[in-house]
Write a protein that binds this DNA or RNA. Structure first.
Lengths: 250, 250
DNA sequence: ATTGGCATATTGTCCGACAATATGTCAATC
DNA sequence: GATTGACATATTGTCGGACAATATGCCAAT
């Protein structure tokens, strides 16, 4: 506050450790496409020589990228450049939400924005492939009526199929944190309330609306579906306004 | 395919390297709250002794966490446990979207889902603090009419303020990838079209609607604002259906 | 109160070494 | 001819020790 150079004449110089610089450069090479996905990363020795540092430093740099899913391993040995999956890409966002004590209500509000959006977009052009997969999903939902484990499975899958039908890969990725965080809640609701019939009804009407391309109705039924879910959470004894991680998840 | 043990009697055993195990354990300790945010992480030597591995291994484990923002540094020396910021948490999602060649249209559709949602939620209870900050933002927007650099700044800030007013930290985080990816596009649009007046009009009406708590109108004006943006992108010569990273961003 | 010197603790980087594992080659065997 | 076994090779995972650079705290000098 009161030093000689208190006025901002000089900006603090940011000298990053070598492993961060190396990491950033490899990262840039990957994102820019210079290193194409699927390609084998040069060996650690190679990289060490190219950058003029030790293998230790290179390894730390690689670890920095490994978490982000930009680098995976071909066979538990050599490393390959990867296209991050939606799961790995949204993992840090999910854990951040967890640690920020995000509530069911907050997540639900987001879902209330994205899920009807997906349903609406899915009405534009439903591919025959996806139509078949959704039909199959509906079929399995009917059969799973009492098997809560299977019901949970198909319920999640149904929403993913709709998102896929929306033909928007960004939406698919943006939705993923909801998947990861809502999963335990879905499970709790299904385990305790066995809302099989209700779910089947909703899914069927949604499927019909999407097949006929009726955007308004699809969005409307998805909203109803989400409202059902909200009610389910409350009836299952979970705290809708409480943080999702404080509720039980065993 | 045709080996002796081709039938799935045995599942492939997953032996993770030590640095991954160590990383996961530290990670669990942080997420579970065992290691509280702000707390200093034990020294590398300490951790090495506790886990019974070398400092090298511990360092690699730490690098794995460092990228996710769970660990930062207090003073460029000691490491501290951090609550991930929304920026760091959504970074991997942003780069994943970039690498998947996400288009303007896809991002815009998501924004069309989230931004009106934020505007609507903001109508519930606008704190006096936020109201003041939004008013200040509007004021600066008026003054910045010709200064494109400043205009970009306040435009982004305005949307962030609305999201903040929505009182939903999850939404704040989910929105962040849009911020990071749209930024260059906003810049391009503003640079080439100088849509100052148009922006001020929209912002003013949005602000009024939020102040009076009129949810429908707030959502409606946000949608109009987004449609304006869509038109802006096209008029600026950017390819609305093309990947965002192929368009220029210098 | 500020400055300078000094010991200490901690991280960043280097070096060299070895173990474990995947790959490829070649001969031996049925 | 296909499988098996033995062997050399390449690459990653882990170890141990070393030193440099830097932040921290204490103490004396001014």
């Amino acid at each position: 506050m009161s030093g000689k150079l208190s006025n901002g004449k000089f900006q603090k110089l940011a000298r990053a450790p070598a492993y961060q610089v190396v990491s950033q450069q490899i990262r840039d090479a990957i994102v820019s496409g210079e290193l194409k996905t699927g390609e084998l990363l040069p060996t650690e020795m190679d990289l060490a020589q190219q950058f003029g540092v030790t293998r230790t430093t290179v390894r730390e740099a690689i670890r920095l990228l490994e978490y982000g899913g930009l680098i995976g391993r071909a066979d538990r040995k050599r490393l390959v450049v990867c296209l991050p999956t939606k799961e790995s890409a949204s993992k840090s966002l999910s854990t951040a939400m967890l640690m920020h004590d995000v509530t069911f209500r907050e997540l639900w509000e987001i879902a209330m924005g994205l899920e009807p959006l997906a349903a609406g977009l899915a009405c534009k052009a439903l591919s025959t492939d996806l139509k078949a997969r959704m039909a199959d999903n509906l079929h399995r939902t009917l059969e799973a009526k009492s098997d809560t484990r299977e019901l949970l499975e198909v319920e999640i899958e149904f929403h993913n199929l709709i998102a896929e039908a929306a033909n928007n890969s960004a939406l698919l990725m943006a939705r993923e944190p909801l998947n990861q965080l809502f999963y335990p809640a879905f499970k709790a609701v299904i385990d305790r309330l066995h809302p099989g019939g209700r779910i089947i009804d909703c899914h069927t009407r949604l499927f019909d609306a999407i097949c006929t391309g009726d955007k308004e109705i699809a969005e409307e039924w998805m909203r109803k579906h989400m409202v059902d879910f909200e009610r389910g959470i409350k009836m299952a004894g979970l705290d809708f306004n409480g943080p999702i991680n404080h509720n039980d998840l065993h």
